[in-house]
């Protein structure tokens, strides 16, 4: 926290780590540098399938999925400042809608995407709209409950969702006559989704709407006094954030061909939130780093296993007290 004000920054600059941070921050302040690094990363990403094992591809595909989810939640928590503790629910709605439409009703995967997204928006509005006028803490607990309720509903509506054992036999989509059934296919798809999500986030953040989200986050009353409809602005953050998750859910269903309610439980929401907090709320590059860290962490530290969540709890507390801006260095003026 101290590092946020001018004097704190001056003190911090003297220590080695902060010096590196400052230089990093200055480097990434330049738009061209950012784009160059981003392009290099995409290029590297495109080349990985030539050299990587299936295991590597699987892990990376997962981290791309997480990047999309984190960027979605980042719009809600990072930009609009609304704590959503049930974000995985929208991932679930996207996945289930796609799964049901393609397996039960035999729709083509690509045609199922628009209704799945529409469904995500409808569920989001039902959960979000009634409570948007309320205090932020109320919102947090309502979203927490809503996430659970959606999972319980998915479990209870057995005829439609397959109940606790879930949906199986979801059709693989095909693209230009090629059936997408290889891990490398999904690697490329999720890489594309992640790149798309980064682009979308960047453009939204630096737009009239993106600024409005941040005004509402910083001071709702002042934003309202400046002519900003706080309810509409919050709702738009909710919807757009949920759309990221819904879209990820569509492709997730196709990749897995089987989904069950347990994939979307409360812990999934929390993992996404931890990644967002770790990477630094409101920062796109931070989301990439946070999502990668979140997926790689359990792979590297397998022995921790069941203690993982305990560590996540600690991370949330420690980050909020000592470094609320996340691991990625902050811009300082």
């Amino acid at each position: 926290m101290a590092a946020n004000d001018g004097s704190g920054a001056a003190v911090a600059r003297r220590t080695g780590l902060a010096g590196v941070e400052d230089r990093l921050a200055a480097f990434f302040d330049d738009r061209r540098h950012r784009y160059a690094v981003f392009a290099a990363l995409i290029l590297a990403g495109l080349l990985v399938p030539r050299v990587g094992s299936n295991y590597t591809l699987e892990i990376l595909t997962n981290s791309f999925l997480y990047i999309v989810l984190c960027l979605g939640l980042n719009i809600i928590v990072g930009y609009a400042g609304l704590l959503d503790l049930g974000f995985a629910a929208f991932f679930a709605v996207g996945a289930y809608s796609t799964g049901i439409l393609t397996s039960t009703f035999g729709w083509n995967f690509w045609l199922a995407i628009p209704p799945a997204l529409l469904f995500t928006v409808i569920v989001r509005v039902i959960i979000g709209a009634p409570t948007l006028r309320l205090r932020s803490d109320y919102l947090a607990i309502v979203t927490l409950g809503a996430g659970e309720m959606i999972r319980i509903i998915a479990r209870n509506m057995k005829d439609l969702t397959g109940g606790a054992s879930g949906l199986i036999g979801i059709q693989r989509p095909s693209l230009f006559g090629l059936e997408l059934n290889q891990i490398s296919h999904y690697y490329y798809i999720f890489l594309a989704l992640a790149v798309l999500a980064v682009f979308a986030s960047d453009r939204l953040e630096h737009s009239r709407l993106g600024r409005a989200w941040k005004y509402v986050r910083d001071d709702e009353d002042a934003a309202e006094a400046m002519g900003i409809d706080r309810v509409a602005v919050k709702l738009s953050a909710y919807i757009i954030g949920a759309l990221f998750a819904g879209l990820a859910g569509c492709f997730y269903a196709a990749k897995m061909t089987a989904i069950s309610p347990e994939t979307f439980q409360f812990m999934q929401s929390i993992m996404i939130l931890v990644a967002v907090v770790l990477g630094g709320m409101g920062k796109i590059a931070g989301m990439v780093v946070g999502a990668m860290a979140m997926v790689l962490f359990p792979e590297v530290f397998r022995e921790i296993g069941s203690m993982r969540m305990l560590v996540f709890g600690l991370i949330l507390i420690v980050m909020m007290i000592f470094r609320p801006q996340g691991i990625w260095p902050d811009r300082r003026h």
């Binding site: 600024r211 941040k214 910083d218 001071d219 009353d221 002042a222 934003a223 006094a225």
Partner: peptide, 10 residues
């Protein structure tokens, strides 16, 4: 009641 985390022009 400024938007504290944002720049002057923002």
């Amino acid at each position: 009641r400024l938007f504290k985390q944002m720049t002057v022009i923002e």
